[in-house]
Design a protein around this nucleic acid. Structure first.
Length: 230
DNA sequence: GCGACAG
DNA sequence: ATCTTGTCGC
């Protein structure tokens, strides 16, 4: 497991962080379809915190897109690099997540993030940020609608409705289990929304949340415990 | 002006 | 995110 320090020049204030988002946003690519669902690799990333000790642990888990078998995994630990501020989540997670991705023995393919991409106050959420910094195709899958609105999708798995910022569709509320609260999908970098939703459905044969995030979540929690103790 | 607000 | 027992159900 690799260890990371807060990068030199990392934003120290909310104002600086917002300025970084406004600058990097111009580099997001939205006109590529993205990797075809059911091919290659799909990688989940997630982080766990110990705010008390100022520690963050990140995990990256690579799945075979067809079998959903885990083919590789990596972890990294670091210092918390930013406080939690809605809209600035990426500044808390990105350095350690990057380290975990770089520690993988193979290319990650599509990266599935825990949170949002385009669905963000300045249209540059965690998935967008990670995509621009790595050049990889990324999507965001969140458990909550954040500040956005949506109509309840129809009952069956696979149903969806637009996730709205006013009249703008910034993502999709996608039902991954019959009658269960939907997940909230938005594009990050180099993927279209339809492709993103198709990936999420393939990644949810058994549970509401994608296998990618479930496995990354379990792995980073374990890494945090090994670092910090019981 | 006062909350609400991904993780 | 995290704090947290038991419990209902497949």
């Amino acid at each position: 497991m690799t260890t990371v320090r807060v990068p030199a020049g990392w934003p120290a204030t909310e104002q600086q962080a917002r300025a970084v988002q406004d600058e990097l946003r111009a580099r997001v690519v939205h006109d590529e379809p993205g990797p075809p669902p059911g091919t290659g690799y799909v990688t989940g990333v997630d982080v766990a915190y110990d705010d008390e000790r100022d520690v963050v642990a990140a995990a990256a888990v690579v799945l075979d897109a067809v079998s959903l078998d885990t083919v590789a995994e990596a972890t990294a630990v670091g210092r918390v690099s930013f406080p939690y501020v809605p809209g600035l989540l990426a500044f808390r997670e990105v350095p350690t997540v990057l380290a975990a991705l770089e520690a993988l023995p193979c290319p990650p393919g599509l990266v599935v993030c825990d949170g949002y991409g385009l669905a963000h106050p300045r249209r540059f959420g965690l998935a967008s940020h990670l995509g621009v910094l790595t050049g990889l195709p990324t999507i965001g899958v969140a458990k909550n609608p954040f500040t956005f609105t949506y109509d309840e999708p129809a009952h069956p798995r696979g149903s969806s409705s637009p996730l709205l910022a006013g009249v703008e569709e910034v993502g999709r509320a996608l039902r991954t289990r019959d009658g269960v609260k939907p997940v909230f999908v938005s594009v990050g970098h180099r993927v279209r929304l339809d492709t993103a939703c198709a990936h999420v459905l393939r990644l949810t044969p058994d549970y509401r949340l994608p296998e990618t995030t479930r496995r990354a979540d379990a792995l980073c929690r374990g890494a945090l415990r090994e670092t910090v103790g019981a």
